[in-house]
């Protein structure tokens, strides 16, 4: 093979990895430079301009991938810094998507689809989301400063308020309904099972109250301390145990239909809480702890 086709193919291989607008100009320049190199080597070493010399020259220049990357930094669909987040989201989300199909597979097998369809869909969505994130981050000013993550006090306090509202709604629904409707009575359909109301529900309400107080304290401090974090894990685990107890006792309402509906909700809630706790524990596992404070480090 003559040297020119080798140079031409090499240049084509480099420019194929570049944006269209850059290709022509770079191809022209690269061809001219490689040809120049070839002529110089031929003169200096007194050897013919053959394919072996052309191959040596282009190999010295570098692999087309590397050379193209020197000319133009390609857009990374998933930024290296996001790799771990992508893997974690892909696995956890994939597991959730697969788990969400279990009821359909069990109850209506004729409507069930191959889990791989949902997994491919999920991975497609993830790739698009991470690609958008990478693109936005690429366009941002690289010299932007860094600020420590701040606790969203508003959201934390809102969550605390929601705990207390939950206690009121679930703890005294008849009283609340009467207050809101000017004294009307709640339908007997929504009457709690007496045993549940007396012996089991108060445990959940107590745990919610504790979680509400904990969130108020976090909001006041403006951060999660190690102790507050541990207490939160304990309370979350407590809620999971109590909900499991509700499910095993099977009686929440006197009437069968609201009871079945409520049990389905408790199951879904329990499932979500288990995932939430599992994820928090997994992410917390890699957190760096017990760092010395400024004065300790200096000492």
């Amino acid at each position: 093979m003559k040297p020119e086709p080798i140079i031409r193919k090499y240049v084509a291989d480099v420019t194929a990895r570049l944006p269209h607008r850059m290709r022509h100009d770079i191809a022209l320049e690269l061809t001219s430079l490689l040809q120049e190199e070839l002529n110089a080597r031929t003169d200096a070493e007194d050897r013919p301009a053959d394919d072996s010399l052309a191959l040596e020259i282009v190999n010295n220049f570098g692999h087309p991938e590397k050379v193209a990357a020197e000319y133009h930094t390609p857009w990374t669909i998933i930024a290296p810094a996001d790799t771990r987040a992508f893997c974690l989201t892909a696995v956890v989300g994939g597991a959730l998507v697969a788990a969400a199909q279990v009821p359909t597979t069990l109850l209506r097998p004729e409507d069930a689809r191959e889990p791989s369809e949902y997994l491919v869909w999920w991975l497609g969505v993830l790739v698009l989301l991470f690609a958008a994130r990478s693109l936005i981050s690429r366009r941002r000013d690289e010299d932007r400063g860094w600020k420590p993550a701040q606790l969203n006090r508003g959201a934390t306090l809102a969550l605390a308020a929601l705990s207390f509202v939950g206690i009121l709604v679930y703890g005294a629904p008849a009283w609340l309904y009467g207050q809101l409707t000017g004294g009307q009575e709640l339908t007997s359909w929504l009457q709690y099972d007496p045993d549940f109301h007396r012996a089991r529900l108060p445990w959940l309400l107590a745990l919610w109250a504790a979680q509400g107080l904990l969130l108020l304290e976090v909001g006041r401090r403006g951060e999660w301390t190690e102790t507050l974090r541990r207490v939160n894990y304990g309370l979350s685990a407590g809620v999971i145990v109590v909900l499991g107890w509700f499910l095993s006792a099977e009686r929440l309402f006197v009437e069968a239909v609201p009871n079945a509906t409520a049990l389905a909700f408790v199951r879904a809630f329990l499932f979500a809480l288990l995932i939430d706790l599992g994820l928090r524990l997994y992410l917390d596992r890699g957190r760096v702890r017990d760092l010395p404070t400024g004065t300790e480090a200096a000492a």
Partner: peptide, 28 residues
Amino acid sequence: RYGYELRQALEERGLSIEEGTLYPLLRR
């Protein structure tokens, strides 16, 4: 100076730079 000439000039003065590094640098 054009790319090859520049590379030669640097090499003559004792600084050898790979072509694959120098030419893209000029574009940047």
